[in-house]
Simulated assay, not measured.
Amino acid sequence: MYKELRQHFEKIISLTDSEFEYICSHFSVKKLKKHQFLVQEGDLVNNDYFVIKGLLKAYHTDNEGRESIMQFAMEDWWITDYQAYFSQSKATLNIDCIEDIEVLSLSLQNRDKICAEMHKVEHFFRKKSNMGYIALQRRILSLLNSNAKERYDQFVDLYPSLIKRLPKILIASYLGVSRETLSRLSS
């Protein structure tokens, strides 16, 4: 299970076996079933999660009960409510399992500890954060400047494997369109 994490780290930094064993000692394994919550709105958020297996969605529910999906996460991706994680406060998002999942969880305290002790791990997380900022900016600009068809085409280009794994209703929510509109776009 930790081999996936090592491969993930080594896309950015190189690690000795002993360094990697030390890093792993700060993670814990969590397994959940489809439809269980990894994070629930209002809960304290203590962990960031690296996905080993499965698929999740992070979403906000408005006062009228409408879901707006902020993010999906599949194998080799990270997910949490980052605002709550970094401020050690209550979640404003829900993170729900679309499939059965296995994740490695890392507390903020452990993250800070290994980053302080190992400069290359701090470098890794800085690079991952930068990539996350870029993805978020791309998503916001897409929502602001692209029509529904363009947003759908961008999603297909960026995440072809997700198209096969996600129900259309979830893709529609992520793109900010109705399921009917998505059906027209994808046919």
Rank of each mutant, 00 (worst) to 15 (best):
D43T: 12
E122N: 14
K31G: 09
K33D: 07
Q109W: 08
Q83L: 15
E102D: 11
Y159G: 01
H60N: 11
D112N: 15
K128A: 14
C24I: 14
W77S: 08
S68Y: 12
E10S: 06
G132N: 05
L44W: 09
L5K: 00
Y133F: 14
V121H: 02
T16A: 10
Y2I: 10
E4F: 13
R6I: 09
Y49G: 02
K33H: 10
M131T: 10
N130P: 06
Y133Q: 10
H8Y: 14
K53F: 04
R126T: 12
K30A: 14
I169L: 14
R139F: 01
D43W: 11
S161F: 08
D43L: 07
N46P: 03
K3A: 13
P167E: 03
V29Y: 11
K30V: 15
N94E: 06
A116S: 15
I101G: 01
S178M: 07
I23L: 10
F20T: 05
G54E: 00
E41D: 13
L144W: 12
S68C: 07
D17Y: 06
D112R: 13
M74N: 11
Y49E: 03
S129N: 14
I98Y: 00
F27A: 03
E117H: 09
G42L: 05
E41A: 12
Q71W: 04
M70L: 15
F72M: 01
W77L: 03
H123M: 14
P160G: 09
L56E: 02
R184D: 02
L5T: 05
K113N: 14
Y59V: 00
R184F: 06
N47R: 11
F86Q: 07
V121M: 05
K57G: 04
M118Q: 11
F27H: 05
E67D: 14
Q36E: 15
I12D: 01
A148Y: 00
L38G: 04
G176A: 07
S89I: 02
I69N: 00
S178T: 14
V156W: 00
I79N: 00
K128Y: 11
L5Q: 04
L56S: 01
K53G: 04
A58F: 00
A73L: 00
Q137I: 06
R126A: 10
